[in-house]
């Protein structure tokens, strides 16, 4: 066995590594190369050095997008995790104990399935769905009701300071189900004896949650935070389909992926779009490194 080790390992690795190089590494390398050119889609790319990056610094749309990613990075994980944790707790632990076993609130099996529904839908479909929900006139799901009640319609996607939050709402709606399942799985593996012991000491549900569930779930939370952070750096499909004027009104909901798309496929500025892609790449890498470092904490062994 020991003798044939290297051929064996190489035999297994060669194909995946080759595929990875061709379909992942090579396009990356090419994007870095294109970012240094003023390529417009046809002809030989012209080398312009760091011009594209210099332009990035003065590009209002770029900074608007970065700012929105900042908001998304804070809001999306916070809101999603908070809601998902609450639901997961209620579904698994919140119902008290029955026969020495922690159970969820009544009907929790049903809720668990229902909460997961949005996760099954394709993002584009969700965006189209919410076009109906947010529609600013009497045929919108929300505004239709409001207007029937004689109230003024709410312009979810039109009011510049409401538009981004309307989109965050959709992102949260879509993400919560998955994290409920993730946290449920985490909670299921917390030994019941700990809960029992805490309850015997007179701990209320709130105390149970903050003193027992949360610390023992830390690792899962950390993973959730990274996932949601990555999602916050994307948001392309939702913004492109749902927002007014692709990232509008007046750039109020734009994100980097939308700006990249616009520069590449509308303005034919492939070089500049690649430079944005490179910027996004470094932003994402930095975020992940930071999160994994900051959230490193002694995990409780049980």
């Amino acid at each position: 066995m020991r003798q044939g080790k290297y051929p064996f390992v190489i035999g297994f690795l060669a194909l995946p590594v080759l595929l990875y190089s061709v379909f992942v590494i090579a396009p990356y390398a090419q994007a870095f190369q294109l970012a240094m050119t003023s390529w417009r889609g046809v002809g030989t790319p012209k080398w312009v050095g760091f011009d594209n990056f210099r332009r990035l610094f003065e590009d209002e749309a770029f900074w608007k997008a970065v700012q929105h990613h900042g908001i998304l990075l804070l809001a999306l994980p916070l809101i999603t995790i908070a809601i998902a944790l609450y639901f997961a707790f209620m579904l698994n632990v919140g119902g008290g104990s029955r026969g020495g076993e922690r159970v969820g609130v009544r009907g929790s099996g049903f809720y668990r399935v229902v909460f997961f529904f949005p996760q099954v839908l394709a993002v584009a479909i969700i965006a189209v769905l919410f076009q109906m929900v947010y529609r600013p006139n009497e045929s919108g799901l929300i505004n239709g009701v409001l207007m029937k009640l004689g109230l003024d319609p709410v312009f979810f996607l039109i009011r510049p300071n409401l538009a981004l939050w309307s989109i965050i709402g959709v992102l949260v709606w879509q993400a919560v189900g998955f994290y409920v399942v993730l946290f449920s799985a985490g909670m299921a593996s917390i030994p019941t004896e700990i809960y029992e012991a805490a309850e015997m000491d007179g701990a209320s549900r709130v105390v149970l949650f903050f003193r027992v569930t949360l610390p023992l779930l830390w690792d899962t939370l950390q993973v959730a935070w990274v996932y949601l952070g990555i999602a916050a750096f994307d948001c392309f499909a939702i913004v492109a389909v749902l927002s007014v004027d692709s990232g509008g009104p007046d750039g109020a909901t734009t994100v980097l992926a939308v700006e990249i798309y616009r520069n590449a496929f509308v303005y034919s500025r492939y070089g500049y779009a690649s430079a944005m892609g490179v910027a996004l790449f470094f932003l994402t890498i930095t975020f992940a490194a930071l999160t994994l470092r900051v959230s490193k904490r002694e995990s409780v062994e049980y």
């Binding site: 396009p27 750096f233 392309f236 892609g277 490179v278 890498i285």
Partner: peptide, 13 residues
């Protein structure tokens, strides 16, 4: 996932 996501921004072809 981290490595897969920014690929959206990087133009392949």
């Amino acid at each position: 996932g981290l490595l897969a996501t920014p690929a959206a921004g990087l133009l392949s072809a």
